[in-house]
Each structure stands twice: as structure tokens, then as C-alpha cells.
Amino acid sequence: MSAPLLTVEDLEVSFPGRTGFTRAVRNASFTLGRERLGIVGESGSGKTTMGRALLGLLPRTAQVTARTMSYDGTNLLTCTERDWQKLRGRRLSMVMQDPKYSLNPVMRVGRQIAETALLHLRTDRGDAKRRTLAMLEAVQIRDPELVYRLYPHQLSGGMGQRIMIAMMLIAEPDLLIADEPTSALDVTVQNEVLRILDDLVRVRGMGLVMISHNLTMVSSFCDRVLIMYAGRIVEECAASELQNAKHPYTQALIAATPSLDVRRTELATVTRDPEWLK
């Protein structure tokens, strides 16, 4: 693998609260090439916060420090708001969780997709529309001309998420962060959306960060997996090696996934050890 796309060293994110600071991400270090990296962990383990930190989109109150945080030669730590605007959407982008909330309800979906193109590519309205229609086709929308004119409430969840993918990929970024892209969808359409996402990322040779709490999905979909617990990256391993994970938390997570083959009356739970925190 050539020089990494993304390098993060000692990332710390904390939020001020009434009783001092809450450290949402602690000492996180990882690198990413043009590969698929899964980030797995329970709710509140800092996955989403880390994803948003990479886009410079944490709330104003958040304190972000790191030894290094660079993306393809750009130092993200010293980015101005204007620099970020050039990066977001164009160089790195993000698919959010629930299309019901992440699409603007009063704007036609076609315009929402075309907007990303108009913001970043030197293009006019007509060309942006052509690109949008092509993009809609790429996410396997059957009647792009019709869907272009629809509003988000007229779409199903699966269609909405494909619109979201189209909107975030139209300006051809090199890295996509997918923050639980299928957990708001019906199980039946989850695989379809994942397959579309997979195809596009593969064809364009993009890097992908897949944030999820679904171990099975991540291990079959990604090359490498980071396990997060209480803001720390507790384990990093190849997705194929996940079954042989060493950290007790990871082992507990794997054990907590019920198997269809073994009959059980009681599900395994994760017993936490304070030792994990240092």
C-alpha cells in the first residue's frame, strides 16, 4: 500500500460538561489507505464523534487535539473554515444514518444532489442536472427523470439512502465515511444499499470508513476493523481475523452475537472490566 490517505495520531475529543470534561475520543491513532476500514463499538463509544471530527463538524464547544491529523497531505488541524468547505463533499464525504432526517424535506432531491456538484465542480445547471441523472442511475434508481423532481417524503427509506449516497458521491471524493448507513433501513433493503455502496467505492477506488455496531456486516464488508470502547481504539485487526480477536471486549462482543445453529435459552452479555480503561 502506498502513502496513506488519512493519518490520525493521538486524536482526543472532549466536551465540557458540568462535572469537568467528558473525553469522547481518547488517544485514537490509525491510518487509512484506499481500503475499507470498519469502526465497530457500542453506542457512546465515540465512533460517530470520531467520524465527525474527521470532517471538522463537531459542535463549537468540542475540544479537538491530535499529534497528527492529515488527509492526503493536508493538515486537518490547521484547516480554516474555507479550507474545510473545499474538502467536504469534494475530497472526503459522509453518508449519514437516516435519510428521513438527513435529506432536506422542502427541497427536491434532484436539486439536493445537483447542489453538491455545483458547489465543487466548475459546471452549470444543465450539466449538473445531467450529472445528477447519471448519478441517480448509478445508485440504481429506475426512473431518474421522475425521481429528480420528488421530495424526500415521497421516497422509501432505501431510495432515500441511495439519494444520500448519490448526493455525497457526485463530486467524486476520495474518502467516504459511512456512519451506520443501513441501520435505519428495513433488513430487506440493507443488503441492496450496501451492495450499491460497495460497487461505487470499488469502481472509483475510494477509501471507506464504515462506522457500525454490526460486527457481521463489518467483517464481511471491510478489510480491516477497529474496535472502539469508551473512546479508545482497543483493538485493530484484519476483518478475516476478527474471530481470533485478542481483546476481551471484542471476544465478548463476538460471543454476544447469537448463532442460528446453537440452541440457547440465555443470551450472552458483556461483563465490563475496569481494567479495559487502562
Binding site: 470532517l55 463538524l57 468547505q85 473545499k86 474538502l87 467536504r88 463533499g89 469534494r90 464525504s93 459522509m94 449519514m96 438527513s102 435529506l103 432536506n104 447542489e115 453538491t116 458547489l119 465543487h120 444520500m164 448526493m167 455525497m168 463530486a171
Partner: peptide, 8 residues
């Protein structure tokens, strides 16, 4: 947030 991720 999505609008800002797009680069607005």
C-alpha cells in the same frame, strides 16, 4: 449537518 458535509 448533511448540507455542510456537501461543502456548503
Amino acid at each position: 449537518t448533511a448540507a455542510r458535509i456537501k461543502g456548503n
